[in-house]
Write a protein that binds this DNA or RNA. Sequence first.
DNA 1: ATTGAACTAAGAGAAAACCTGTAGAAATAT
DNA 2: ATATTTCTACAGGTTTTCTCTTAGTTCAAT
Lengths: 211, 211
Amino acid sequence: MKQIKIAIIDDHDLFREGIRLVIGQIENFEVVFDTSNGNLFLEFLQHSFPDVVLMDISMPLIDGVETTRKAIELRPSLNIIALTMFSDTTNYTKMINAGVKGFVLKKSTKFELQQAISVVFEGGNYFSQEIIKKLAFRSSNGFQGTDHLTNREIDILNLICKGFTSYEIAEKLFISAKTVETHRSNIFLKANVRNIAGLIVWAINNNYFSI
Amino acid sequence: MKQIKIAIIDDHDLFREGIRLVIGQIENFEVVFDTSNGNLFLEFLQHSFPDVVLMDISMPLIDGVETTRKAIELRPSLNIIALTMFSDTTNYTKMINAGVKGFVLKKSTKFELQQAISVVFEGGNYFSQEIIKKLAFRSSNGFQGTDHLTNREIDILNLICKGFTSYEIAEKLFISAKTVETHRSNIFLKANVRNIAGLIVWAINNNYFSI
DNA sequence: ATTGAACTAAGAGAAAACCTGTAGAAATAT
DNA sequence: ATATTTCTACAGGTTTTCTCTTAGTTCAAT
């Protein structure tokens, strides 16, 4: 029986260390690389090819989505499983589009992780129940694929999230308050929300803003 | 050298399992109990006395703050270390007031965790650098110890965060919109923010709302 | 060269948010 | 018993948000 070579990318040292040991206990599973830094992983990929990669999503420097994209670009057949804390709806799609083969929540069990790794190693897909439920819920609600924001809209969204009024934003960006309001309206349309409260939540979920 | 008996309360199975193994590797450290459920831990306390407890904060059923309070009530000399994912400012104080002897972030290293456990076991306190920084920052900014919200205010804050208008909230709660506005104003004062954007961020940071 | 997207701007009005202050009734604490 | 806190409610005001619509300019792509 061949050893399954596993790489772990997660910025939480304790968690990573823990997972290493959990995996080390499983027969035929072997952690060959672990890091807190997506870029270091991409370097590692230059000369090595792990069988399965466990990838955290939210990380500093370069996040899981970006790391996954670049990794898959480099090694299209790479088996990446997203490993995440949150039930963050949008990142599912981002990660899936980036090319992950599986999705496991950090709160799931050792058994489920083992399942996921095995299945993905054998060429399959593995998605936690909860992710599937979320996706099902979204499609049943006529969720429209998030129109991407323009650069200007992102700037403005960020300032809105920081609590600035349209007028204040206008001053900062040296444009008219009316222009800011236009952008704001367009952002609302794309985010499909009615007011700032909804917008902030959307912005956080869609990685446009973090607390 | 005496074995240090450690209990772990954390609802994330994978993380808990990992920590178990991490601790198992350390000489003189021994995990005697672990659970995802604060109530089960309180039961365990009826007949046992671990040397150090690692306690997650956000958990379903009964959260870390509540579990800590009850545990300390039962065993005032218990050494509890809060183990948390977030840099959540208010929970520091809540947990400290509840009686924890230390505070370690989940993203810290195995070494730091070992430090923390040893120090707390010997009767000291251990707080991660980052926590101390936060606390220092707060006091240097004339931060007024978060006036706690009343129950009604918490209800209303929650609805505000969900994007309802004052009028809609009034309808839901069968009170006047003016009353809602009064509560809203009081919440703004306590949160020390100027608008909904700031309020949402504050609410999330203070565990009144989660995404 | 033309199309399209992005950025800019504004008018006009309704709705909601935000500020300040007052005040009574009920529940809770000391 | 008395004081305090909480919940309720309103007045009257300013500011900001939100909706809808129209439109000129610039820049990049086909």
